[in-house]
Amino acid sequence: MPVMGDDGITVTIANESDIVTARQMGRALSEQVGFQGSDLTIIATAISEIARNIVTYAQRGEIVLRPVTANSRRGVVVVARDDGPGIPDIARAMQDGYSTGKTLGLGLPGARRLMDEFEIQSEVGVGTIVTMRKWLRR
């Protein structure tokens, strides 16, 4: 169950249907913020990628979705956190086609392309935090 609080919506990510929930929540929040049409799909797809990485590589974690305002611009921020195995070589993981899971290796670099801002912090044995932002076009 997603939890709505002062600091946004928190969705626990542990399985396939949580990915769908995170996507839907992200879409709904973005719509409230003012995003429309293909932007909603873009944000939902980016959320899907990092949520799926949590399920695949860290088993469980959470995604926090929040509206943000900076320099009079509005947008959404998505923070994905897990206490999984972490990523030993972030630069490599960010390359197109790099995958330890025999999949397309497009999740991280692709999500970076879809969103306006993308940061990743990861430490082996500690976990991974991905922060992404998308701003409304003025």
Binding site: I42, T45, G107, G110, L114
Partner: peptide, 14 residues
């Protein structure tokens, strides 16, 4: 496959 989804997939690099 909707146009929006196809576009997002292409941006991902698929």
């Amino acid at each position: 496959l909707s146009g929006d989804v196809a576009q997002a997939l292409v941006s991902l690099g698929v």
